[in-house]
Design a protein around this nucleic acid. Sequence first.
DNA 1: AATATATTTCGTATTTTTGCGAAATATAAA
DNA 2: TTTATATTTCGCAAAAATACGAAATATATT
Lengths: 102, 102
Amino acid sequence: MDKKRELPADVIEIAKFAKALSHPVRVYILKKLAGMNTCCYSGNIVEELPIGRSTLSQHLKELKYAGLIQGEIEAPYIKYCLNRENWENLKKIFGDFINTEG
Amino acid sequence: MDKKRELPADVIEIAKFAKALSHPVRVYILKKLAGMNTCCYSGNIVEELPIGRSTLSQHLKELKYAGLIQGEIEAPYIKYCLNRENWENLKKIFGDFINTEG
DNA sequence: AATATATTTCGTATTTTTGCGAAATATAAA
DNA sequence: TTTATATTTCGCAAAAATACGAAATATATT
């Protein structure tokens, strides 16, 4: 029987990505960006959702922090795109997790 | 351009499952249960992790609430097992999500 | 330089999550 | 029936997440 220990790194990584996906607004944004093979603007997203601009901004910030999206200035807009590299990483991590087998 | 609307049901469902996975202790438990093709006891889990018994109990409660595990009394223990049906559901939901394409 | 537009940051309030120890519960064993 | 064991629930405190409007920032246009 294993003794008390820290949680394994892969488990922590799964939880970190899951946390980024734990709010429907963030899932919506990621799904949109992964679905369109293009990018989008904060202003367009906020028109589709029942939240304010500053709230959206916070969700975008969290997705940036998780490395899942990136913003590029295209003044006066900011164009948000999926971070393909980390998105692939998330796919791998989650793919492995849901295929956990005995 | 779409007008402000509620978030789609599938997006909400993804976020709900992601929330259940947003804490490493809960990921650890699910991974363990999905990996072993068997069940386990609260007492065995708590010995492996750096958290107290009542804290673990709360995490188990959340996983139960999310429908991902179920407990069966096997006095004086409680045997926790994966809820295979909902686990399959999570696999499908997440599988579809990570395969979101343009 | 002044104005208009898009977005973020700040300050704040509310709610939710996380964690713990003590007490309660339930049941097996003596 | 008493005692011991496993787990949960309760009560609480601290931290994090969520949301908003007002103000700040940055930059294009006039």
